[in-house]
Structure formats: C-alpha cells, structure tokens
C-alpha cells in the first residue's frame, strides 16, 4: 500500500514537471515579445535580459503615428460580424448534415468538405475581380460577406451534433415543437462547448486575418488592425521593437477574449448532455 502511494506521488511529480515545462516552452516567445516591445531599438536584438531602459516609447510611436483607433474599430466590427454570422450559418448547416434527412445531403456535405481541399491561392484573383466588379472593395460588405461561412466549422458542428443523444430532441418533437424550435432551444444549448470553440477560433482567425483584408482595403480608413500594423514593416527592414509592440496591440485583446470565453469550454459540463 505504502509503496503504491509513493508511486502515485512520483508520477504526479513527473506529471507536473512535464506539464509545467511544456507550458513554459509555449509561452516563452510571447513573454519575450512582450518584453521586447518595451525595449529600445538598440537593445531589442540583444539576448541578455535587463530591465534598464525599458519604456513605453514604442507604443507611443504606434499610437501617435498610426490611426490605430480606426484600425481597432474596423477590426472589432469585422470580427464581430463574421463571428456571429458564422456561428449561426455553420451551426444550422452542421445540424442539418448531422440530424436532418433530405435528398442531396451527402453530395452537399461532400461539397462542403471538398472546398476545403482546393488551395485558396488559385481562387484569389477571380474572387478579387468579383469583389471589384461588385464595387465591394473598401467596404464592410467586402470585408465580411465572403467570409460568413466556414467549411471547417460546418464539419465540426456536424461532428458535435452527431455525438449528442437524440432522446431530448425526439421528446420535444413529440411535444409538438418544430425543428427550428428544437434546434435553437434544445440542440444548440447542448453543444455550447463547441460553440465557444467555434467563436474563439473564428474571432481569433478573423482578428489576425491579413491576406484578404489587405487585398480588399486599399485606403487607410478601411485597414483592419493587422493590415495597419503591417506598415511597421518597412520595405528594406523593420525595427523589431516597434513590430513587437504592434504585435502586442494585436494579441493582448484576444488573450483577454480567450480568458473570458475559455470558461464556457470547461465549466459548462453540467448543462452538457448526458445527465
């Protein structure tokens, strides 16, 4: 007995050593970037750690030289619209593919999967031409509408809807509830963890998106934050300290957002299914 318990303690210690060291490896670059964002251009490339000469000057530079308030506003509006739109559209489609029977379902699902498999690069130019013909460049329409769905999350939602038990839905149906009602009132609450996962992934993905916004926005008043911060990278070189400060302006809001949302992934287990 005694031996057994010390064995468990040993494995616990090893478990903690491994989990903590991996956590350190994972956050190191972020901590380093955070630290670098307060350094001078002279110090930023040095490997030593010193707390002398740290200052807010890089942030001051960004906030005085770039219309960063406008960039934040654009980013928040775009990411919010895209996230909410996606949550609704993907969840509905995912539910239909998981639960409802209709002709052509398999083909449509294969299309949803299939379009993930074509390298986006070859669609770039025709899509850009469409956007310009529609006169959607430099507009919220152009920045949001083409991105209101995601094959990846339709597929994910399908998988999650498949894994919850059907009993509750069937009972509700017998009580006379419509499919729409069942979806919104019963099925969706059961997959809250998946919805949070989707929301986090979508929001962060769109918050960081660079390629498409940089094609659609060609005037500074339409730049999103990552596009605007791209200005810190000059043609021939960039100052790492400024770039790092820019990166922090981009990253810190989403870390906060993640801290808020991650609770729903974990602590909602009581509302989730299997009671």
């Amino acid at each position: 007995m005694n031996q057994n318990s010390s064995k468990i303690n040993m494995s616990k210690v090893i478990f903690y050593i491994i989990t903590i060291s991996y956590a350190l490896i994972a956050i190191m670059p972020f901590i380093w970037s955070f630290y670098s964002s307060f350094r001078t251009p002279e110090d930023v490339n040095k490997i030593n750690i010193s707390f002398k000469n740290l200052s807010m000057m890089n942030y001051k530079y960004i906030f005085t030289n770039l219309p960063i308030g406008r960039y934040y506003l654009n980013s928040v509006i775009v990411a919010a619209i895209v996230t909410v739109g996606n949550l609704l559209i993907n969840s509905m489609a995912g539910y239909a593919f998981a639960r409802l029977e209709f002709a052509g379902k398999d083909i449509m699902f294969m299309i949803v999967l299939g379009i993930m498999m074509i390298p986006g690069q070859v669609l770039m130019v025709p899509t850009f031409v469409m956007l310009s013909k529609l006169n959607w460049l430099n507009s919220f329409r152009g920045l949001t509408i083409p991105f209101l769905f995601s094959s990846f999350y339709i597929f994910m939602m399908r998988q999650f809807f498949m894994s919850i038990p059907k009993d509750l839905e069937e009972a509700a149906f017998i009580d006379g509830m419509s499919r729409g009602g069942i979806f919104f009132k019963i099925a969706l609450p059961l997959v809250k963890p998946a919805l949070s996962t989707q929301a986090i992934g979508l929001f962060i993905g769109n918050w960081n998106a660079f390629l498409w916004p940089s094609l659609i926005a060609t005037k500074k008043e339409w730049f999103t934050l990552p596009v605007g911060l791209g200005d810190l990278e000059f043609r021939y070189f960039s100052f790492q300290n400024q770039v790092m400060a820019g990166t922090m302006c981009l990253t810190i809001p989403i870390i906060i957002m993640f801290l808020v949302l991650q609770k729903y992934i974990i602590e909602n287990s009581t509302t989730s299914g299997m009671k």
Binding site: N90, M92, A93, A96, L100, E101, K105, I115, I145
Partner: peptide, 22 residues
C-alpha cells in the same frame, strides 16, 4: 425534416456557390 434541412443549409450553400464554386 427535408424542408428544414434545405432551409438550414441554404445560407451556407449560397455563400459557397458564390464565393468558392464560381
């Protein structure tokens, strides 16, 4: 279910048709 099914996949399928398939 078939009606609800089409209704639920319609928004996604229209977007896919316009922005990917085309």
């Amino acid at each position: 279910d078939a009606v609800w099914g089409y209704l639920f996949v319609l928004p996604a399928m229209i977007l896919i048709a316009v922005w990917i398939i085309y």
